[in-house]
């Protein structure tokens, strides 16, 4: 049962990759990239999970306890921050593209570029 979370993260990863490959709209591609990030974050957190584990905080009550691994969580926190930054930057770029070409569809952008050139 504990492996289910891995399968779920791989399914989400597959959805993200499918989105990037199949979707033409640039905004949908950005969302697909965000889905891939989420899938990888779920996978990494799951790697540090220990069944019936406790939060990794030493205290008088839990001097020796079955702690979950805190390092993957710390890594994911950093990865989430970077992911949000990239998503925000991607959105800004899309706003600029939309202002310049009036569309986020690559075919329409190509047509506009050909007319301009």
């Amino acid at each position: 049962m504990s492996n289910i979370i891995y399968y779920v993260s791989f399914i989400i990863l597959g959805i993200g990759i499918y989105g990037i490959v199949s979707q033409k709209n640039l905004f949908k591609q950005l969302i697909s990239l965000s889905i891939i990030d989420t899938a990888v974050n779920i996978f990494i957190v799951a790697l540090g999970y220990v069944e019936w584990g406790e939060a990794p905080i030493y205290s008088a009550i839990t001097p020796v306890a079955n702690f979950v691994d805190p390092l993957p969580q710390a890594l994911v926190l950093t990865a989430i921050v970077i992911g949000v930054g990239t998503l925000a930057l991607g959105s800004i770029l899309l706003v600029h593209i939309n202002e310049k070409y009036g569309s986020l569809d690559p075919d329409e952008i190509r047509d506009t570029r050909e007319v301009v050139e």
Partner: peptide, 28 residues
């Protein structure tokens, strides 16, 4: 004013970065 080129790079680079993270975590 090269937002389109930068966005293409962002998509490729985003996937590349994710793969690097998976590699690093696999090492750990």
């Amino acid at each position: 004013d090269n937002a389109l080129g930068a966005f293409k790079y962002l998509i490729f680079g985003g996937i590349g970065g994710t793969m690097y993270l998976l590699g690093a975590v696999s090492v750990y």
